[in-house]
Design a protein around this nucleic acid. Structure first.
Lengths: 66, 66
DNA sequence: TCTAAAAGTAAATAAAACTTTACATTTTTA
DNA sequence: TAAAAATGTAAAGTTTTATTTACTTTTAGA
């Protein structure tokens, strides 16, 4: 699982803290997602997709190996 | 959060157990998702979307109230 | 209508997401 | 270049997802 959160956040010129607040999660959660430390809930993914104006499928890409 | 998993599963004429096996989770996980008992990971949502040939945004719908 | 498969429910457990706090390092800007 | 802001890291704790087992109820088929 890779994702485009860091890139899309940069496009919106937001800090991790600002994005976290906007999405209602902690800054560490944003950090962990950007670093592929975990696999967010579909709800958080949907909120991100909406904010970034991107389908979840483009924001989060499952690795081929499964 | 509501979702169309039960409906889409019916369209594919699959049992909960078959869907669970296909997705690599337990039957109880499918049951809990269909009953809105929890909020699956984005990975599981993406796998479901792919199987059902539906975007995650159509398969899982966030309630207005948030 | 009897039986078997499927779905519902529930409880104990494991695993992972997410929070909070705290501090170090890097980057930005005054 | 010093200070401030942003990011990285890490650990302990909480909450929620997911598993496993087991049993009950509902649905479908012979």
């Amino acid at each position: 699982m890779k994702n485009l959160v860091k890139v899309e956040r940069a496009r919106l010129d937001m800090t991790q803290a600002e994005l976290a607040k906007e999405l209602g999660v902690s800054r560490q959660t944003i950090h962990a997602i950007e670093k592929d430390k975990f696999n967010p809930s579909v709800t958080l993914a949907l909120k991100m997709g909406r904010l970034f104006n991107l389908p979840v499928e483009e924001l989060f890409i499952i690795d081929e190996d499964y």
